[in-house]
Design a protein around this nucleic acid. Sequence first.
RNA 1: GCGGUUGUGGUGAAGUUGGUCAACACUCUGGAUUGUGGCUCCAGCAUUCGCGAGUUCGAGUCUCGUCAAUCGCCCCA
Length: 425
Amino acid sequence: MANYQTPRGTQDILPSQSRKWLQIETLIRSVCDVYGYEEIRTPMFEDTKVFKRENDSSDMVNKEMYTFSVHGEDSMTLRPEGTAGIIRSFVQHKMYGNADLPVKLYYMGEMFRYERPQKGRYRQFNQFGIENIGVKSPMIDAEIIALGYSIVKGLGLQSVKVLINTLGDEQSRSTYREVLKDHFKDHLPELCEDCKRRYEINPLRLLDCKVDHDLECMKTAPSLEQSLNEESKEYFRQVLGALDALEIPYEIDARLVRGLDYYTHTVFEVVSTHPESGTQATVFGGGRYDNLVEYFGGPQMSGVGFGMGLERLLILAEAEQVPLEERPALDAYVMALGNVGSKPLELATEIRAAGYRCEFNAVPRSLKAQFKSVDRFRTKVAVIVGETELQQGMVNIKDIKNQTQITVPFEQVIDTLDRILGGEE
RNA sequence: GCGGUUGUGGUGAAGUUGGUCAACACUCUGGAUUGUGGCUCCAGCAUUCGCGAGUUCGAGUCUCGUCAAUCGCCCCA
């Protein structure tokens, strides 16, 4: 028969892992809360046009999407990233009319990309991200980097660094595009196949090619900086100044241009330098977008945001031995000796109602086996229901740590637990 | 989309030039000890080696296909 298993590039998150997920998610939500970002939940799929924008040349948009159409309706696509859906929602609900700009949103959830899976790269993956829309300020660019940075640091990750660059405003950017094309025009034959393709669709990406890295024409390529207008330079200076003031270490990486071509001004990427992260080193990355809101039909309004891959965060947390939560110890385990009917379940229910984590023995088992369960659950108190005591309305309560045992009437079980468990905290 | 490596029980894994019983360790289950465990001792736990074909008298071991994981390229969170 068929062997059922998770589809390629997807994974089951089992309880031992989901505890860690919950821990990370909780940390993220608390940081967002402090920074005044509120959660937005948009659909898992959108009209394909939301993700496939005109003039967008990235491969992600071109071929890595899960696109489908059912019952002859419009083409839909499983979201490959968070920003597009949020901007769509921002415009649809006219959030630009909000009295308090910027609008500060965060999202967390599954994203889908048809790619070849690798460590830290899956077809269904979880991403957390924020978008700050409506106010264009270098202070906000720095603020969101600080937010992301504090999550990474809050998790205890050490080996990360912030890479940052600026693409300048629309004008600077297109000026540079032409300057670059001009420069490489005579060197086209030397370039690799990918670069020839990039030359046409997105010359900016020529700069971070790994194959042609050492070519002479790469080294002599004009830098983006020369094409920046004064306004763009000043903007970037202020972003860096703010990062300095916040004592966030960064590295300016002139090659950093990022994949999505809606970015303007600041782009950044926080990468891990830990060997475990392999080639999938980016922990979070993003940048400012001046024209996206307008593209979706809103007013001319700038925004800035980033996306963070949670699987990677988890991999890094484990690689750096960050202590993640274990299953909490059990407060009480109700053991059954002989024929005691439903009494263990009754007691367990009562104990649970009192707010204690409690398990009970449901099938006839030897005392030894039951004590093994007690040990495995790291139980604090064993409640032992025996036939003899049951007839007298009594039950044994054993403090596992101190190895002391007393016999009390049913009515005093909770009081006794309160005393034992309350005393140790 | 391209190239490399790997795939044996719940877990970690041995498996020699293809030749009966698929080692060992941990976990788990039961017993010694039907009502008080964590030590010890004993016993049990893979009709089967990712899946499917093929070669062979015989395949975990060879071939092909397929699925998956992983590393690198591409791309990117």
